[in-house]
Design a protein around this nucleic acid. Structure first.
Length: 498
RNA sequence: GGGCCUCUAGCUCAGUUGGUUAGAGCAACGGACUUUUAAUCCGUGGGUCGUCGGUUCGAUCCCGACGGGGCCUACCA
C-alpha cells in the first residue's frame, strides 16, 4: 500500500472525511473546555479497579467513587445510556457508563457528539456492575483527556503486516500480543542483567562511532564527522573495545547495545540489531559456554517460568538440560559420510562442495568446511547445541585449540537451526593476532569486502597483556525469536522500514 | 543481485474475461433507543482502484517503467 504524502492537518481541503470531522470536534472541545488538558484529577487506574473488584455480582452498586482515564476501544450508545470500553496501556479494560440521570442532558449530548473511538477520556463516578455483570464506572462526570484525530483501525480484523510495522503505535493499541512482546523483551533484558550481576560482571558502553570497524566480518555503515573531518563507521561489533577493557582489568565485562551491519535484511537479519557481548578473564570457551546456557535458561525461567517455552503456533522449544557440544569436523564427517579434517586438501573440499551444488570461490579451505557443515548438519539441529572447534582461517580473533591442530577454540550455539550465539577462547597473543590481521588485510586487498582491517591501537592494547579469557556474543533479537517463535521484525518494536 | 507474486474507502477485503453509476463488514454522518458487550434498527456520505506512460473508441483491469510490500533464491560471526 503506497503512502500518500502525509496529510497536512492544517490544510482543511482534501482531508479524509473522518479526520475533518474529528478536527471539528477538537475545535468544539476547545471551545467548551480543553481537548488536551494538562492534568486530570485521576485517583485510580483501570488495572487497580479491576484488581480491587475481582468478582462482583450482577447489578451491584458499591458506593465507591473512583476517577480514572483510558482510551475508548469500543462504544455503544443508546438514547439515554451510553457505554464505552476504556483500555489502559496495560491492555486492561473497564466499562464506562454515562446515563442521563447521572450526568445530565448537556454532558450526555456532548459525549455522544464529541467522543470517538480512540479518544482518551476521563470519567469519575461509582464502581458498579451492569445488568449483564460487567464491571463499570457509572459516571457522574466526564472530560476529554486527549482527542484522537485519526480513526483507529477496525478491531475485528487482523491488521496487515505492513501496517503493523509502519504504525507500531497503532499495533500496540489494538493487538495484545504486540504489547506482550514488548514486555517479554524488557523482562528478558532484566533477566540477562541479573544473571551477569550475580556473577560479578560489569556492564559498560563502548563506542558506536568508530574510526576503524572491527571485531566481526561484515560491511559497515559509513558516516562522516564534521568536527574531526574524518570518515567514521557505525560499529559492527563491540569486541575490540571490550577486550581493551579486559586488558585494563575489567575482568568480567559485558555490553548490551546496538550493532549495525550494512547487509541484507530478512526474517532473521536486521540492519541494526541488539547485541550482547561478554568477556571473562581466566575463563575459556567452555566456561563462557556454561555462562551462555545459564543466561538463556535463566531468561526462559524468569520470563515464562519454564525451560519448555511455547512458541507462536504452539510448538514447544525445549531449552532444558545440559546442551550437547559437538565437533564441527566430526559432525560434518558423520553427516557427509567422508572423513573431513583440517588436513583435508582444498581440492577434495571443492569436489565435495560442487557435488552438493555449493558454488563458492574462496581462497581458504575453512570457508568450504563451514559451508559444507551448514549444508549437511545445520538444518538437523533443533535442540540447543554448541558446535565446537572451527577452522582457524575463518576465525581471526580466536585462539588455536590447546590440543587439536588446525582448529580454534570457538563454538557457535544453534537453537532451532538458527545461529544464536558464538563464543571463543580469546586470542590474546599480540604477535599471532597481528599476523592474523595481516592475513585479513591481504584478503581485503584481494577483494573480500568483509575482511577485517588492521587496528593498531587494539594490537597495542594486547601488547600490554590481556589475560587468558573466554568471550561470547549473542544477538538479543534472535534470543527473543527463540523464546517467542516470532520473526525479527516482530521482536523489534520499531524496525527499519523504507 | 536474480526470479515470482502483490498494491482497490480510515481498517480488513471482494470485484471488474476492457464498457453506463467500483462493492461488503467495521469506522464515519443524520435519526430512534436507559443495560450494551463487534449493541440493534432506519437512512446517508466516503475512492486519482500505488505513480507515470503506452495500446484502445473506451483502461482500475492489458503492456512497460518507476515506487512500496511479500515470498523464494543469493549474500550474511
Amino acid at each position: 500500500m503506497s503512502e500518500q504524502p502525509e496529510t497536512e492537518l492544517d490544510l482543511e481541503q482534501d482531508l479524509p472525511e473522518q479526520i475533518a470531522v474529528r478536527l471539528a470536534k477538537r475545535e468544539r472541545l476547545n471551545e467548551l473546555n480543553d481537548a488536551y488538558p494538562v492534568s486530570l484529577p485521576i485517583t485510580h487506574t483501570i488495572d487497580g479497579v479491576r484488581a480491587a473488584y475481582p468478582e462482583l455480582e450482577i447489578d451491584v452498586a458499591t458506593g465507591d467513587k473512583v476517577a480514572l482515564a483510558g482510551r475508548i476501544v469500543f462504544q455503544r450508545n443508546t438514547g439515554k445510556l451510553c457505554f464505552a470500553t476504556l483500555q489502559a496501556g496495560s491492555g486492561q479494560r473497564i466499562q464506562a457508563m454515562l446515563s442521563l440521570d447521572k450526568v445530565g442532558e448537556e454532558q450526555l449530548e456532548a459525549w455522544k457528539e464529541l467522543v470517538d473511538l480512540g479518544d482518551h477520556v476521563f470519567v469519575a463516578g461509582e464502581v458498579v456492575t451492569s445488568k449483564r455483570g460487567e464491571l463499570s464506572i457509572l459516571a457522574d462526570e466526564w472530560l476529554m483527556a486527549a482527542k484522537t484525530i485519526r480513526p483507529l483501525p477496525n478491531m475485528h480484523n487482523e491488521l496487515g503486516e505492513e501496517y503493523r510495522v509502519r504504525h507500531r503505535y497503532v499495533d500496540l493499541i489494538v493487538r495484545d500480543r504486540a504489547r506482550e512482546v514488548v514486555q517479554i523483551r524488557s523482562k528478558v533484558m532484566q533477566s540477562l542483567r541479573r544473571t551477569f550481576d550475580a556473577q560479578q560482571f560489569i556492564e559498560v558502553e563502548t563506542p558506536m562511532l568508530q574510526t576503524i570497524h572491527g571485531g566481526a566480518s561484515a560491511r559497515p555503515f559509513k558516516t562522516h564527522s564534521n568536527a574531526f573531518d574524518t570518515e567514521l563507521f557505525l560499529r559492527i561489533a563491540p569486541e575490540l573495545f571490550l577486550k581493551r577493557a579486559v586488558v585494563g582489568g575489567i575482568d568480567r565485562v559485558f555490553e548490551i547495545n546496538r550493532n549495525f551491519r550494512n547487509e541484507g535484511a530478512d526474517r532473521t537479519h536486521s540492519p541494526e540489531f541488539a547485541m550482547l557481548e561478554a568477556y571473562q578473564a581466566y575463563g575459556d570457551y567452555n566456561s563462557i559456554a556454561d555462562l551462555t546456557q545459564q543466561l538463556i535458561q535463566n531468561a526462559a525461567m524468569d520470563v515464562f517460568g519454564t525451560h519448555q517455552v511455547e512458541l507462536e503456533g504452539g510448538e514447544i522449544n525445549d531449552l532444558g538440560g545440559e546442551w550437547p557440544r559437538i565437533s564441527m569436523y566430526e559432525s560434518l564427517s558423520e553427516a557427509c559420510g567422508q572423513v573431513i579434517t583440517p588436513e583435508t586438501p582444498m581440492a577434495e573440499l571443492k569436489k565435495l562442495a560442487s557435488s552438493v551444488e555449493i558454488e563458492i570461490d574462496h581462497p581458504l579451505p575453512g570457508k568450504y568446511v563451514e559451508e559444507l557443515w551448514e549444508h549437511f548438519v545445520k538444518g538437523n539441529l533443533v535442540k540447543p547445541t554448541f558446535v565446537i572447534d572451527f577452522p582457524v582461517d575463518t576465525s581471526p580473533l580466536t585462539r588455536d585449540h590447546r590440543s587439536k591442530a588446525g582448529v580454534v577454540e570457538k563454538w557457535d550455539l544453534y537453537i532451532r537451526g538458527y545461529e544464536q550465539a558464538t563464543g571463543y577462547s580469546e586470542l590474546v597473543d599480540p604477535v599471532i593476532q597481528r599476523a592474523r590481521f595481516v592475513e585479513q588485510v591481504t584478503l581485503a586487498a584481494s577483494g573480500d569486502p568483509e575482511a577485517m582491517k588492521l587496528d593498531e591501537d587494539f594490537l597495542k592494547a594486547l601488547e600490554f597483556g590481556m589475560p587468558p579469557s573466554g568471550g561470547m556474543g549473542m544477538g538479543i533479537d534472535r534470543l527473543l525469536m527463540s523464546l517467542t517463535g516470532l520473526g525479527i521484525r516482530e521482536t523489534i518494536m520499531f524496525p527499519l522500514v523504507k
